[in-house]
Design a protein around this nucleic acid. Sequence first.
DNA 1: CGTCCTTATGTAAACGCTTACATACACGCT
DNA 2: AGCGTGTATGTAAGCGTTTACATAAGGACG
Lengths: 347, 347
Amino acid sequence: MTAKAEKRRKTIRDIAREARVSTATVSRVLNGSAPVRPDTRERVEHVIERHHFVFDGLAGGLASRRSGLLGLVIPTVINSIYAAFAQSIQAVAQKERYTVLLGVSEFSPAEEERLIEQFIARRVEALILTGADRPARSYQQMRRNQVPFIITWKSTRRRDLPSVSFDNGDAARKAVSFLLQCGHRRIGLICGRTGVNDRARERRDAFETTLKERGITVDPELVCECDFEFDAGRAAMQGMLRRPDPPTAVFCANDIQAIGAITECRGEGIPVPGGMSIVGFDDLPIATFVDPQLTTIRVPAAEMGRLAAEAVIAHLTRHTPLGSIVLPTELIVRSSASGPMPAGRPW
Amino acid sequence: MTAKAEKRRKTIRDIAREARVSTATVSRVLNGSAPVRPDTRERVEHVIERHHFVFDGLAGGLASRRSGLLGLVIPTVINSIYAAFAQSIQAVAQKERYTVLLGVSEFSPAEEERLIEQFIARRVEALILTGADRPARSYQQMRRNQVPFIITWKSTRRRDLPSVSFDNGDAARKAVSFLLQCGHRRIGLICGRTGVNDRARERRDAFETTLKERGITVDPELVCECDFEFDAGRAAMQGMLRRPDPPTAVFCANDIQAIGAITECRGEGIPVPGGMSIVGFDDLPIATFVDPQLTTIRVPAAEMGRLAAEAVIAHLTRHTPLGSIVLPTELIVRSSASGPMPAGRPW
DNA sequence: CGTCCTTATGTAAACGCTTACATACACGCT
DNA sequence: AGCGTGTATGTAAGCGTTTACATAAGGACG
């Protein structure tokens, strides 16, 4: 090493000088943005190799106005349904040479807003968001900064909100209808907090509407909003069981809560589905590994992630307009729900 | 709007002109890097507000040589133990105004290497990695580019590899010792693929060593490496049960596999723990919601994430040296393991 | 009242790329 | 020979910040 061996990083200028070409040519070799004669290319690549040159994405992004960054904002990643969603987005991004910025809002609207703002400042090329409920301010910021975005997990008829989603209301209706078909009339609901979660709200609305359509009045005591935790589901179930007139079936807008609810029933000696029918939502892998296997709604989380990522990338690279896709959901009938006991509570 | 209303983004130069200060002052207001007189500050902030100025993180990062980016590379995020880890890292990062780049390698060494390279090119300020096994090339690149990194999920005595981890071997030993104490002598192992997962290898090694220490020869037929999936665990259990001389207990190096294994036993009419004892690893939330509740090893995933993130950030901001921390694990005794049946197979 | 701080601000050169535009040359055609 | 065309390359002006350094203004002090 000569005394001149400053610890400065190599730049394309260094490469250019040594390969006796211009920086433009190096840049062209680096991203194939224009034809380069094979011998020139080889010469440049050789120098790059020899000096362990590492491209600077920040500088590249600044100059080209394409950061190669995609922002993903989800409420949680611990629930494996969101994890599956996130992972498939990351997989698509990776394949298309984009990098994912991960933002977890923990169901806090303020945090979500902050993340969106932060990601815009980082110059993400697009945002993938969960749900449609957020301050107008966030939407304005995305538009003002011309950051395309796509809504997921919630279909919306607003034409100005592109989305890749499924119909929460329709899905919840399937679950509740199934319980009604089984003969249940006194049905409880355990769901997420509708105040901070528009998907939970849609599911709850559909629950209530479906019951009303059949002339059943919804007993507010049989509706419980709580966190997406096993324990929360369990506690909610416990609350319902303690009522003088407990439900014969419960729809849980989430498999985690459903498993908690099942556990509580079993702990109380109430057979499922014999004494209590339970339907979940998400179809987590675990749903087939609990006893009884969970009847639930299958949600296309991974596919939704893949399609959302593909959509924004197609939009960025080929100007494909961003539209809305509604994916199907499916009731998966297993064994956690059946008809109510013919009379009283025989357990 | 005048005809001059080009759709150009506002820059600090625009702000500076309008607030009748220099760009340096705007910069100082923006990141409080030097004192600014209150009235000047207010004037600048006012203009920023009025024009909806949005800072450009790419340009800022380029100029300051601080990107504000942290790279996280994990093998999967679908397993909720890694999700918990990732989420706590993101939480710390968010609080400290860093942004997390998410990389999921899906247990592919090649993919992991690519992610590390990509993240370095994006000029992450530090990397949080899973395990220590990777090509020397990756380590060289990190060092050459002076990107600090920290290893997680695996303790290592190499002093050149800072880490926040727990001792996989020690943890596995606790699990196996417990089964031995229960009286088991014929013990199976279901674990991850040791070829691409050094944590799995450590657990397997400890399993074998612990048995050998007690003078028990390890039956290779009772060791099964498979994916971290319920079905894989189930299939592995099935394989063992079909042997002429099945084990009386199985250590699963992962709760997911353990739950699959339990399910298989129950499907075959083998009571757990009566006919088969099972110990898991991770202590996922679901562990208390399966029947029987899973005896398992509690792994400090969230704390490990938090500490890893805090360590790299402290290193970046306060030059705290990066060292190694080994967190404790704990055997959580529940009900999926007990003594072996006194004789034969009474089920 | 000149000197020396201190504090607030301005000047302008980076940071490491991309890309519009200019140039150079080779080739085929009339 | 003259022209047009196309391909490969070079030139240099950005991209939107930060920050070292210079400067200015206001005290405090002897």
